[in-house]
Design a protein around this nucleic acid. Structure first.
Lengths: 343, 343
DNA sequence: ATGAGTGATGTAAAGGTTTACATAAAGGTC
DNA sequence: GACCTTTATGTAAACCTTTACATCACTCAT
């Protein structure tokens, strides 16, 4: 019962008066064991409260049923919903999940890599655009892995995300439809594929509308709130003001709104702003943010499904799965009329 | 090198031309092995890329150096900073940490409990006010555990948090100092100790100022944004309006602000609002929220320190560690003058 | 030269599983 | 009744470590 040391398979075997092999079979291949014996074993398990020692099992089997999810920043507002999708799908297939937090520290990433040498985890879900393992990854074998949200830079790792170009196109089309012609694009780092792709949507939208591109109102940043605020300052300094700000993500958009608010402007009366991601806060800031929604739970589900496929087949079915992002219209966009007049 | 199966201690032993026992000693008790041999072993380890199999090690040792952190909701804005404190402290003592997500599902909690039967983790950090293990916890042995943020209801588990009463007192004192006399208290569930304690601070503050308590403006909820919004509606329906809202947490406060905003009121001109926690959003909503800061990183650090102590000594040094919460003054509080006139 | 002590290394058992193989009993066929 | 098949169970090896104990070769004191 409530013993000091957990029951082992031998305890169960002794009580059920069978061998440990039979106990193991009763658990994992119940059809291979006589009804009467199975009953005895189940009773013994109930009495002892036995649960198989996962370490011993993995050690013997050379595999585990845990999936490791590695994220550089657990506080990322996108993280938790994706996680739910990942978890539900994993559970449905008998896998459990563990979360590792690297804080963008390669050393920590490396520690988690050891998990795979020990068979403590069977597969890897990566939330980061680059492998978190530094150079060692070259010599070490990579476990079966799937990237989420953004492609993984330096490995041939399949990933699940959203069609960034299409999403960005939806945002720019909305702004164009409202009548905006001077639309700034506030990006993060040019090295990120998401940036490149969203920028492509922006460029294509302008082009289709016959609006000539204006690189003076295309800025880079680092995707943080602070970076959005900074972009606003830059544009005011240069005196090249747009009528709308299309931002590479919601954090940047929030920063832009804070920056404009600090200068006394009203959104959407004076300027329109769009984001990308639809983080939970997007509803609660004021005005609420018009943005592009990432179907997070679905992304998580797909990513896990892909990984499980990888684990059983060994071959990646496809190397990139892009889901459809939706435009979420809220209150940060309106027609630019008054702006036009003022300037 | 880049072999298909990870190197074992035997591979290292063969290359270094020693026994596996010597390899193990060279790693864990380097002073017990001759300099020359240690050198050979280290070279062999470098060649093979050997890393010890954590499962085999834990199986043999009957303990691991992983700490499991179980949280019901990883999206909780309080979570990630605490986690950083936990991680840093753990790492400094040679422990790694793993995160389990229960989504408030006892079944999932139970799965993580199996971790301890398998020695996959040595200790437990709990982010939830009740044990996530359902009734089984009665029969099963609990691993060494520490609660974070709120006391754990049904176990004699030590915990690290903040002095809720003192924090609440600071908030109510600020409001009183600004001249408010009709101060609503918007709580979550009466079953939560944090509620009780913050309420105590509220009551004590009013009492010290000679303001008679008015239960008509003390409401309960569930601590969500929606719940704050709902509280505002209730007060308007009953026509028992306060001049200030003191909220049990920031989520509720944000909800209150949204609710007041929706009715066209300006904060802090028409009503003052305070929160508790200082979640990251508190800075970015407008107006920015005056609230009580939880020293999150410090809480995490202390909790892990306590757990590590538990692991080595077996005895909890103290059963409750309360850190000092600080008032963070922002822009959601002002004097009530105009309100008074209007009503 | 002997014996005790010291230091470095090797041998083998143990930790809790799973499973190939061996064994045994029972059932079916002629 | 002898033989083959099927079904149920047991035996023992393997997974990779750590470490108590044994062994061996020294050094040093007597």
């Amino acid at each position: 019962m409530s013993n000091s040391t957990p029951a082992t398979i031998e305890d169960v075997a002794r009580i059920a008066e069978v061998s440990i092999a039979t106990v193991s079979r009763a658990i994992h291949m119940p059809e291979k064991v006589a009804n009467s014996t199975r009953l005895k074993v189940n009773q013994a398990i109930a009495i002892t409260g036995y649960t198989t020692n996962a370490m011993a099992r993995s050690l013997r089997l050379g595999r585990s049923n845990m999936i490791l999810v590695v994220a550089p920043d657990i506080g990322d507002p996108n993280f938790s919903n994706i996680l739910v999708g990942l978890e539900n799908e994993a559970r449905a297939h008998g896998y459990g999940i563990l979360i590792g937090h690297t804080q963008n520290d390669a050393q920590r990433g490396l520690e988690y890599l050891k998990f795979f040498n020990s068979n403590q985890a069977a597969g890897l879900i990566l939330f980061t655009g680059i492998l978190p393992f530094g150079h060692q990854s070259m010599t070490a074998r990579l476990p079966p892995s799937v990237g989420v949200f953004e492609p993984v830079f330096n490995g041939g790792i399949p990933y699940v995300g959203v069609d960034d170009t299409e999403g960005a196109r939806k945002a720019v089309d909305l702004l164009l439809a409202e009548g905006h012609r001077k639309i700034a694009f506030i990006g993060d780092s040019r090295t990120r594929l998401a940036y490149t792709r969203r920028r492509m949507g922006y460029d294509a939208g302008l082009d289709a509308a016959g609006v000539p591109p204006d690189t003076r109102i295309v800025l880079e940043g680092d995707g943080t709130i602070e970076s959005g605020r900074h972009a606003v300052e830059q544009l005011f300094m240069r005196d090249t003001l747009p009528t709308a700000f299309m931002c590479v993500n919601d954090q940047t958009a929030i920063g832009v709104m804070v920056g404009l608010g600090a200068r006394g402007y009203d959104i959407p009366r004076d300027f329109s702003v769009t984001g990308f991601d639809d983080v939970p806060q997007a509803v609660f800031i004021s005005p609420s943010l018009t943005t592009i929604r990432q179907p997070r739970t679905a992304i998580g589900k797909q990513a896990m499904a892909l990984l499980l496929e990888l684990l059983s087949d060994g071959q990646p079915a496809e190397t990139e799965i892009l889901l459809r992002p939706d435009l979420v219209v809220r209150n940060s966009v309106s027609a630019p009329s008054r702006n036009w007049l003022r300037r």
